[in-house]
Computed example of a mutant assay.
Amino acid sequence: MRESAAERHDRLLGLVRERGSARVSDLASQLGVSPVTARRDVEELAGRGLLDRVHGSVSWPQDAPTGAAGPGSTGSGLVLGMLAPSSTYYFAEVIRGAHEAAARAGARLILRISDYRPQEDHARTEGLLSAGAEGLLVAPGWQDPGDPAAFGDWIASLPVPTVLLERRPTAGSPLDGLDRVCSDHAHGVLLAVRHLVDLGHGAPLLMARADSPTAVAVRSGYVEALGVLGLRAPQDVIDSVPAELAPDAFEQAVQALREAVLSGVATAALIHNDVDAIQVVQRLAELDVRVPEDLALIAYDDEVAALADTPLTAVAPPKREVGRHATELLVERLGQSAGAPRRHLTLLPQLRVRDSCGARLP
């Protein structure tokens, strides 16, 4: 099976962490990739604050507080492990927040990426423990509703303090008793729906994926938001898929949204996620449906929404703050007795208003 970019990044980070520093040309040889690919990987990881880059070489970040030593030694002596489903898009900011908080605490953060393969989460977490992790930040690579039950029981029996990131287990399950830090996506959806209604629109349509815990939370939050505001959905949720993976299904979704606009079923929509929203707006323009003139639109995630031709209003989960608070909670937990109460911390998204909603309807 061809190695993914996330897996390659994981190996690259491991090599630099073990050595403290390395030349990019040597990393290319070790990874079995071209120097161009290695340079691109290094630039991406350095841009996210996971590596320091100077004159053709890279090193493990030296931004720990005064008193922290070189690789393998930190001011507090703590080594923290982090399992994330991806090192890009949404989780790039979560990782950055965790890295910054670990540095402030004088701790070393070790990263493993599952590439949204939950069947590999356990083995990668064991790798973190073998590398010396004394506490763990865990964001399982769950995608399907059945994944927590199929690939989650082991998390509750980990031998070190563990904090869940952006994951809400089933109430009453063993995982529900762990510390966790999550974004309140239901609140984020409510902010979006309320904003559109306040502009004079009826209940907006929802176009959303169903391939991640965030997508599932957005869908359930939509139902909850309509109930809070006393609204009824104008029609069923339009299932969204990545255009590059399923172009026919993507076109079908866009055509369904276009038909809803032209028939007057809806004048507003919420789309998860940003990338899908930008591609939907582009395709709608080709079909003579304009944003915001014909359709007011809000995106969910706010990763690239501001970069659209018409900057998109977007719900912004507090991604970096999730990583930061989770790391701070883990460091605090490591200094407490085993009987200290567990905590569930929920952080509220923000609505960032741009041009895609237009003015109030007459």
Rank of each mutant, 00 (worst) to 15 (best):
309 D>E: 13
318 P>H: 12
159 P>S: 04
305 A>T: 09
141 G>M: 11
18 E>F: 00
5 A>N: 13
39 R>M: 09
74 T>I: 00
171 A>Q: 10
173 S>G: 05
353 V>I: 15
276 D>H: 12
233 A>G: 06
269 A>V: 11
250 F>I: 04
306 A>Q: 14
265 V>R: 15
138 V>K: 04
298 I>M: 12
352 R>M: 04
111 L>Y: 02
207 M>H: 05
106 G>E: 02
42 V>R: 06
265 V>C: 05
282 Q>I: 01
282 Q>L: 06
354 R>P: 03
57 S>E: 15
61 P>F: 01
175 L>Q: 15
289 V>A: 10
267 T>M: 02
253 A>K: 10
328 E>H: 02
34 S>H: 12
101 A>N: 07
80 L>P: 10
86 S>N: 10
345 L>H: 02
177 G>M: 03
247 P>K: 03
111 L>H: 03
110 I>G: 03
49 G>C: 09
213 P>R: 13
336 Q>V: 00
229 L>K: 07
355 D>I: 03
330 L>Q: 10
62 Q>T: 13
27 L>G: 08
177 G>A: 12
17 R>E: 11
290 R>L: 14
242 P>L: 07
240 S>Q: 12
219 R>Q: 13
171 A>M: 00
160 V>P: 03
286 E>I: 00
127 G>A: 04
336 Q>S: 14
249 A>K: 13
61 P>H: 00
35 P>G: 11
28 A>D: 08
322 V>P: 01
330 L>W: 06
272 H>L: 11
145 P>V: 01
19 R>D: 05
48 R>D: 09
141 G>P: 03
314 A>L: 05
243 A>K: 08
235 Q>E: 14
338 A>G: 10
99 H>C: 04
218 V>S: 06
203 A>S: 14
286 E>K: 13
137 L>P: 12
17 R>G: 07
23 R>L: 08
34 S>T: 15
134 E>H: 00
222 Y>P: 01
131 A>D: 13
102 A>R: 02
277 A>F: 02
249 A>M: 03
80 L>K: 09
214 T>S: 15
58 V>H: 05
297 L>V: 14
67 G>W: 00
296 A>W: 02
103 A>D: 06
82 M>F: 00
181 V>E: 10
260 A>E: 08
221 G>V: 05
37 T>C: 04
161 P>E: 06
255 Q>S: 14
303 E>N: 11
298 I>E: 10
300 Y>M: 06
236 D>Y: 05
139 A>G: 05
304 V>P: 04
333 R>I: 05
13 L>G: 02
44 E>I: 08
160 V>H: 05
347 L>E: 12
320 R>M: 09
331 V>D: 07
230 G>I: 10
360 R>M: 11
94 V>M: 07
39 R>H: 13
285 A>R: 15
249 A>F: 07
330 L>A: 12
127 G>R: 11
122 H>C: 08
110 I>L: 15
6 A>N: 15
91 F>D: 09
257 L>K: 13
19 R>P: 00
88 T>Q: 14
208 A>S: 15
168 R>Q: 11
184 D>V: 08
226 L>V: 06
28 A>F: 08
17 R>A: 14
77 G>W: 03
197 V>Q: 07
327 T>F: 03
276 D>Q: 14
360 R>F: 02
176 D>Q: 04
238 I>Q: 10
179 D>C: 08
105 A>C: 11
98 A>V: 07
124 R>H: 09
322 V>C: 07
263 S>Y: 00
118 P>I: 08
